[in-house]
Design a binder for these strands. Structure first.
Lengths: 342, 342
DNA sequence: TTTAGCACTCGACGGATAAGAGTGCTAATC
DNA sequence: GATTAGCACTCTTATCCGTCGAGTGCTAAA
């Protein structure tokens, strides 16, 4: 569809614009050396590229900037895979080599490192709520009527909740209840615990415990995790402020308010495909980041995708570098996790 | 020191400036009605007040704005105690009435409510690290070589850490170790756990366990809480962006970067006095908030101050309202907590 | 097909001017 | 003696206007 020369020029424009954040003129392209044509020729091609929708002009007599379509073409066809610098590889290796007992801690570390390396904002969805399953429930007595319920997941995460034990329950009743829970709920995804509890298990508990309604309610309180909020980590939220597109405080506020929320990100990540995915500008469906791009990568455990890590930057972001980093990282992380849980 | 008239004028200027964020002129004061003098008279007084250091002039022929000293005088001598609106009282009562199993959750709720009510940023130091003591340690086996260590504090907070148990330890050795820990560490402030472990307890464990070095190391990992980070909650961090003094992105970044850190706040809160404390501008010692004011209140349990809640706003903040809110809240919270833990 | 040349467009920058807000001082008034 | 009206003065802000430079689009020549 595009001639070789047009592709060179488009590539040069996107590159330059990513670096400078200013409209790119024909002269500066010509001077770069890698496109050996005069400004006039380049101007003609640029005019064509604009007609085709790959470029835009902020106003007559300004240079061109890439349109969303231009970025898309650039990402799909023109991008050389970024090569990581030694320092970057080193840093990532460092994080992944650290001995950490929980996946989440490691993920969080990686989020911070990535945001530092890229100077963009990183958003990480920890071990996927959708696929995390229950491994074990334990009840540890605290005092006369309270206990700590431990919810242990297959990803090695432990969550604790303080529960008040309904009056008049004998120790054996409690023990039996916990045994039932473990027998029936092990392997069940966290999100389904609640419905399973009410639909199947409540009645079974009823067979062994007299006043079981309140008990079931207590269990409900313990297992209905409020963790879904906490599984979303952000790194380098203020990095965006250094980008020239956020010189306006209004825009900053819109973005930061979005970063304070959980829902939009869950939705954005819900339909993330495996592997690297680049969503440019309005492809993101969330209005507040219509002039941003979101690059996501997934990591997996035992062949199953369990989490997503994303980098959010202006549409004018360094796609090559970020994709390279995410690719490298998601592979490494997957390898490590699988070795770990073998 | 100041005449009655000067006090009225100073008060009027501060009030107006807090509302408008613009230098206040003699004419607008005169027109307010509560100061029944002509602009000329007021001008003379303003000139005097400036000489005394209570007012400042951004430039000749602009109105006056309060200096730090002016705010200080206003807060100390001119401020009528703010009266809460019904809605505000209602909201606070609502939060405090909710049945929550952990102090921290409640504190966090309050932080959010307060930042919404004030439109400033709230910073809350949860149950004080300095005074929180250990109540109990429990070890729950997970699989062959791993276990969950539960650290239970006197404030009802439970923290869990996954530990890898050193090879070659018998069950009885582990049990004995836990017993020693409970016997010797109960009631010890969290911050002192580590030193106590190495100085007193390590040797005692050595008597019962052969290869005790690695075990002590593991215990260290479990008790050295990284929670100190998580005890600091922020609410409404983006509220500051709506304040006109933060129209400049640079300032926003400085502040937000500060809000990402923990240390400065710990230091700021470390020397918080009991009751309400107002620190204006440079009184804060942290440079990044030299044009902000921080109002803090403490709450207590069993007569002992256990936490601090602060509201951060521009020096031009609504002192009356915020002080009223904080006062009301800290009393209520203290009452509730004490009823709760009775 | 490519390029040199040139007229044209548009935003950025800087200086000049006017408007407006507010002061400080002086002299008149209470 | 305290208060106030009046007025000149200062400083900021907005606006206008001309200039400059970057960049384009078109035409004609190579």
């Amino acid at each position: 569809m595009l001639s070789e020369r047009q592709r060179m020029i488009l590539s040069a424009i996107v590159d330059d614009y990513i670096r400078s954040a200013e409209p790119v003129g024909s002269r500066s392209i010509s001077k770069r050396g890698d496109v050996g044509f005069s400004p006039a020729t380049i101007r003609n091609e640029m005019s064509d590229l604009e007609e085709l929708g790959f470029l835009e002009q902020p106003h007559t007599s300004a240079g061109r900037i890439p349109s969303h379509k231009g970025y898309r073409y650039y990402v799909d066809h023109l991008l050389g895979t970024g090569i990581l610098s030694n320092q970057e590889v080193h840093l990532l290796k460092g994080v992944l080599a650290e001995r950490i007992t929980e996946i989440e801690q490691m993920i969080q570390q990686v989020a911070i490192i990535l945001s530092n390396l890229t100077n963009y904002t990183s958003i990480v969805l920890g071990p996927e709520v959708f696929s995390t399953t229950l491994k074990q429930v334990q009840l540890v007595p605290l005092d006369d009527n309270r206990a700590v319920a431990l919810i242990i997941t297959n990803t090695g995460h432990v969550e604790n909740k303080i529960v008040t034990i309904p009056e008049g329950l004998s120790v054996s009743e409690i023990e039996r209840t916990v045994a039932i829970l473990n027998a029936r709920l092990t392997g069940v995804p966290l999100l389904q615990l609640k419905s399973k509890l009410y639909n199947e298990i409540a009645s079974e508990i009823g067979k062994h415990v007299s006043n079981y309604e309140e008990l079931v309610k207590t269990i409900d309180g313990a297992i209905s995790s409020d963790e879904s909020d906490q599984r979303l980590f952000f790194g380098g939220t203020t990095n965006m402020l250094t980008q020239p597109e956020f010189r306006d405080v209004e825009k900053v506020k819109t973005l930061l308010d979005l970063l304070d929320q959980t829902d939009p990100w869950m939705k954005l990540f819900a339909n993330a495909q495996d592997g690297i995915q680049v969503r440019i500008g309005t492809e993101n469906s969330v209005e507040a980041i219509n002039n941003c791009s979101l690059i996501t990568a997934t990591y997996s455990l035992q062949g199953k995708t369990i989490g997503t890590i994303g980098i959010l930057g202006p549409t004018r972001m360094e796609y090559g570098k970020v994709i390279g980093l995410l690719d490298h990282f998601s592979r490494d992380l997957t390898t490590i996790l699988n070795k770990w849980y073998k």
